[in-house]
Design a protein around this nucleic acid. Sequence first.
DNA 1: GTCTATAGATGGATAGAC
DNA 2: GTCTATCCATCTATAGAC
Lengths: 220, 220
Amino acid sequence: MSDHLISDDAAELGQDEAATKAAVFAAAERLFALHGFQNVSVRDITAAAGVNLASVNYHFGSKDALLFEIFRRRTSELNRERARMLHEAAGRHGGKPPVREILEALFAPPLRWADPAGDRQVSVQFIIRARSEGTEEIREVLQNDVSHLERFAEALKTACPHLPPETVYWRLHFCLGMVHNNRFVEFDRLHHLSGGATREGDVPALLARMLDFAEAGFRA
Amino acid sequence: MSDHLISDDAAELGQDEAATKAAVFAAAERLFALHGFQNVSVRDITAAAGVNLASVNYHFGSKDALLFEIFRRRTSELNRERARMLHEAAGRHGGKPPVREILEALFAPPLRWADPAGDRQVSVQFIIRARSEGTEEIREVLQNDVSHLERFAEALKTACPHLPPETVYWRLHFCLGMVHNNRFVEFDRLHHLSGGATREGDVPALLARMLDFAEAGFRA
DNA sequence: GTCTATAGATGGATAGAC
DNA sequence: GTCTATCCATCTATAGAC
């Protein structure tokens, strides 16, 4: 089992307990990504994980708290990857990376997760669903936790000194919309519309397409 | 009360019945747009509409059927407006409208609905939420009902003969992502991130921003 | 047609045995 | 810590009185 499926608390706990907690965590993330938060019951989760019904409340406190813990773990992983890529791009360009490399730091991590070859597709779908279907607590975090986006906004403003700041914010918003639209359902719809011409499994190609489109949008 | 809040069946029914049905329809649309499908009960809907609990099942058959009926009405209205604008743009340009006018036909209708000055904000938010949180039936319709998008794809391919068809489909997908991201939560987040610099209430300005960005994306 | 009362099912959470 | 049995709240849908 991959590292990111194991609880941070594993070292502090007995192996069985850690295994149970990790199994609940993984089953919940997968089921929620596939069917949505409200459509998955605690019974579904514990049955899929092969543990008893009380495990969710024992290990996480409640169903809501379980979902919140998955959300926090995954979003902080994602934001860390994005921040690292942005930092590396800055290092390559004396602190002033060009638009395309800033956008690549924004797009690439979730796209890499979405690669069918890996085992993190569910994590991306989970995050996207949790963003729109999550609890009130998740919505509050989304609203107030924008520090990771601030770094991207600043970098874009520096890279586009000719643009008014509001314009940069709006275009960042458009780019995030492009990312959030990368859901299974939308891919299937596009596949159907294009008569099978689009293949979302080719991640590097999709990344290049997104960068071409968005970079040009910032040049307008 | 505006015309679009009145049931198509109004003429065939007694006034009281039509009024009750319309009240249920309007309350359900509003509550679902605000709180999500699963978070609103039939009891919430009938209480807000000021009618009795059994009304939903009597007039619509079930909660699912009620939501589906709202979804069908609103999406067909939206698609009709978009098709009309696309048709008018084609008329102005001898059947070959430029990219910007095609995209305007795609963007303008939902943006006009989102205008705070009007009374159709809930309808846009309803459609966006229903797209991602809706029932299995709604998801099937979304997947199979792409005829309205085909016209846009064809128009874009004609306007961009230099682009491979897959590229056009992907860019149309990116544009739809921009539209679907226009939710209250995302606007609030952007407002917070930008320190209050973005004002989503200015619909013509937002439309121009979206067109600038997307049109440039198609030129890449 | 409207409304009340209730059936029937399901869900989250927990007590208590082991 | 694990697990079973169960409590209790909530929901959709409907029967039946008016």
